[in-house]
């Protein structure tokens, strides 16, 4: 086995320390008794208790989850359709514009996306609330979904679909029985990506939400502007914990699936 050089060890150690120490400090100090966030005064979980009683945070969290579930689900359907069109659709009128509109939102500054959507909603007289945030989030996250799904569609063997069609499947059956199971992991990671992007978004939600609907990032931002607070530390810790568990579970499931797929392919090769 190749040994890792000292230079590489140092850069990995320092790099990962840089990435993780700030979050670690945040997590540790969420269990601090004192209201002063930089002075340690003993272990306590009281900030979590206070968080659970904070109606404003709870209702914002509920709005955020609702928006994230709805927008990521619509975005997954639209994004998968768009990916299929891009990879399998062949030529059609306005294809360049279409692929441009898929890739542009990925690099568009959020302030511009938010401003333009707000001006649209006001222009057509749509009241700002949960619905407008869902529309906004669906629009940018469907582009991410389509990039994730199309990268899987590009690598996948088209002859499998053709075989299904030759064996008498209708196009929709071929999609349901052959294509969808194969691209399913990419569709699921696309959904997860859309879900987290929606949970995370502050700027676009600030532009497109109205007084009736406040999301958690908007709430956190307005609290944080006034300075560091232990309650926000507790909330951040909960969010970090959920994400960590989610990502680790997803990667374990993914790994198991890859091992199984490899085994099946090996067996198929032997037969």
């Amino acid at each position: 086995m190749k040994r890792i050089s000292w230079f590489n060890t140092v850069s990995l150690t320092l790099g990962f320390a840089f990435l993780y120490v700030p979050m670690l400090i945040l997590v540790i100090y969420s269990f601090n008794q004192s209201k002063l966030v930089t002075v340690w005064a003993g272990f306590s979980t009281k900030w979590y208790g206070e968080l659970m009683q904070n109606e404003a945070f709870l209702s914002a969290a509920w709005v955020t989850i609702k928006v994230a579930v709805i927008s990521s689900s619509i975005a997954t359907v639209l994004g998968t359709m768009a990916a299929y069109v891009l990879v399998r659709g062949g030529r059609f009128m306005g294809r360049t514009l279409f692929s441009g509109m898929i890739y542009a939102p990925l690099v568009m500054p959020e302030v511009i996306t938010g401003l333009s959507l707000l001006l649209l909603f006001i222009g057509i007289g749509l009241d700002r609330g949960v619905m407008t945030i869902v529309l906004a989030h669906t629009t940018f996250s469907m582009c991410y979904v389509s990039v994730v799904v199309s990268s899987r569609l590009v690598t996948f063997d088209r002859s499998l679909e053709e075989a299904a069609l030759d064996l008498g499947c209708s196009p929709s059956e071929a999609f349901r029985l052959v294509t969808l199971p194969i691209i399913a992991p990419a569709v699921i990671s696309g959904w997860l990506l859309a879900f987290t992007l929606s949970l995370d978004d502050l700027v676009i939600a600030s532009f497109t939400s109205g007084p009736a609907a406040t999301t958690l990032p908007i709430k956190i931002y307005s609290a944080v502007r006034l300075g560091v607070s232990p309650e926000i530390n507790a909330l951040s810790t909960l969010m970090i914990a959920i994400v960590t568990i989610g990502v680790i579970t997803a990667s374990l499931v993914n790994k198991r699936q890859m091992v199984r797929q490899q085994r099946e392919e090996n067996e198929a090769g032997r037969n």
């Binding site: 700030p22 979050m23 400090i25 945040l26 944080v224 560091v228 926000i232 969010m239 970090i240």
Partner: peptide, 12 residues
Amino acid sequence: TSFLIRVYAWMG
């Protein structure tokens, strides 16, 4: 992990 939280971590 939330972008906002990662920026916030540096404030402390």
